[in-house]
Design a protein around this nucleic acid. Structure first.
Lengths: 318, 318
DNA sequence: TGTGATGATGTTACCGTTAACATTGTACAA
DNA sequence: TTGTACAATGTTAACGGTAACATCATCACA
């Protein structure tokens, strides 16, 4: 294995100088700098993260803690995981996946948490490593967090439907006592209040067939053209099934979902949806956790939120 | 950080003895053994993988190389990734995710490859680290591999449909020139040959709406009750949509899919399918790659295949 | 011309673990 | 009784990198 010494010998300097070229380039003279860089190139040197980790008292391992039920893993996680892993790798870190909040933390540098509930937060705060949440933290919680801007997302969706000419706009939300569910609903209410449309909010669990049943019972009230803003793509899938048995989509009834991972491509017609920008989210999460690890000080902006965009497909053009 | 020395002091032995208790328990006397174990417990010692890695010339990092198009990531990968990461962690390894087959291999110990094509194999063989493929390797390929037994899976599915009383059994396969597609088709053909049923094989791309169109044109030939064995759940989804416009499911027409991740729970009625046993697959993959890394010799059984099981839901009980 | 500040580079020791070798004690055969 | 094999444990020297400190040359200024 090529190491610092090999490079040092080639460049006729000490290995410390080589180390400095890599970690503190400002501390070496330009000539030596290029000399060393050529030597690194010539011998094909790749820094050994393991040795680096040992002396730095790090592990260069970040744990992805998935607190949601694994059985129902949403395809979201594949995208998020891939993006996270790539961003981490770029910073020299690697990924560990755990489902156990009580696992020991002595061999990791930080934790990214997904699928957490309110009651997990106290346990997470008590940990002795930096933690970043996926999903907005409550205001009283000191943990850093990154989230898609749920309210803005549904606002965009509702405004978009209004702009398309739909005036009878329903919202089918999630019957879950979680912040993101409330924020999405708030997005709908905010726009309807602003536009002066009639507010029609219903809730269901996150299952296509339940949404199907709900909307089937609702349809006789529709004042066409009707639009249905759904809290998730899964709900939208059920809504779509119910609606298309009776009405033409999108002429008589438009449907828009939220998430934009996989399900939206599966529906017939293809679903217009608010897409979670996972690449960006992963980037922000990694930036957050790494900054907490590498500088003792936390970033001033602790709670980052990323505004999502609409992907227009076939269920909305009036 | 609690280290070997702390344990050694507590147990009144040298740190080497502690190390041996962990790595070569057969080399220490029973009394010292328990003594040291108590000391480890008492001080809360967790071995430092980083130091271990340095002296062992390892990295304890396995790369998951995903060669399929990321845009169309199947939800499969979330399940597989989670399982792989968990199995790896148990052996002290961590995960790195890469989409680039040409990435340097100096800082990893092994590679798990998914979504590979025939033309990738020569590049993979040329690598200087152990490689294990997800998906059966061709017979002339020296790389180790783990796969679901595709032929056995469709055989089970076809036999099951026959046993349910369907006699007019169609197979909707994948129009892909890949081994797994051929094996699944072979499974259908084998059972139909054995049972003496009429062989009806059609192919389509892996899209629900294409399968829908195909089956719509096929339906007038059905001699009820008809069964349709599908190469993937995605195809089954389209088949289901087409069939249920005309026939009763499952009384007049039964449908069975393959994969059992996510899509099967989304259909209405819920899809009977052949489920990929990802937990088991991940376990075998990890066992393969670790054995290649830790012993110089490869396992004698290089190509492992795991037989899947049927998950009976609502699209098949006649 | 001597002195001290400054910037560039080298030297040393250590991070926590393990392989290899050294040492000790004990049992047993000659 | 003595020598020897062997089992149990200890000692040493790495693995590859970096922080902290030491050294050296250069230059400005009194």
């Amino acid at each position: 294995m090529v190491n610092l010494n090999d490079v040092a010998r080639k460049a006729h300097v000490s290995k410390m100088t080589v180390s400095r070229v890599i970690n503190h380039p400002d501390q070496v003279s330009p000539e030596v700098m290029t000399l060393v860089q050529q030597a690194i190139e010539a011998v094909g040197y790749v820094p050994n993260q393991v040795a680096r980790a040992l002396v730095n008292q790090r592990h260069y391992v970040i744990r992805f803690l998935l607190l949601e039920d694994v059985a129902t893993v949403e395809p979201n996680y594949a995208k998020l995981l891939i993006r996270l892993a790539q961003n981490l790798q770029q910073k020299g870190y690697t990924l560990e996946i755990s489902l156990d909040i009580t696992a020991e933390t002595k061999s990791i540098d930080g934790i990214i948490v997904s699928g957490w509930r309110q009651e997990d937060l106290s346990k997470l705060q008590a940990l002795d490593v930096p933690v970043t949440l996926y999903g907005a933290a409550p205001t009283n919680c000191p943990l850093s967090s990154v989230d898609v801007d749920n309210q803005a997302g549904i606002e965009k969706a509702t405004k978009y439907m209004w702009r398309q000419g739909y005036r009878d706009i329903y919202y089918i939300g999630l019957s879950l006592d979680l912040p993101f569910a409330k924020q999405r609903e708030a997005g709908y209410r905010a726009v309807m209040a602003q536009k002066g449309g009639r507010v029609s909010v219903y809730q269901t669990e996150n299952h296509a067939h339940l949404a199907d049943t709900l909307v089937t019972n609702l349809m006789h009230n529709f004042q066409l053209p009707t639009a249905i803003v759904c809290a998730t793509d899964r709900i939208a899938l059920g809504v779509l099934r119910a609606v298309q048995r009776v009405y033409h989509i999108p002429r008589e009834c438009g449907v828009i979902g939220f998430d934009g991972v996989f399900i939206d491509q599966l529906t017939q017609p293809q679903l217009t949806t608010v897409r979670q920008p996972f690449a960006l989210i992963a980037e922000k999460i990694v930036a957050q956790i790494i900054s907490q690890i590498e500088s003792e000080t936390t970033l001033e902006t602790n709670n980052v939120s990323v505004s999502p965009d609409i992907v227009v497909r076939e269920t909305t053009s009036l």
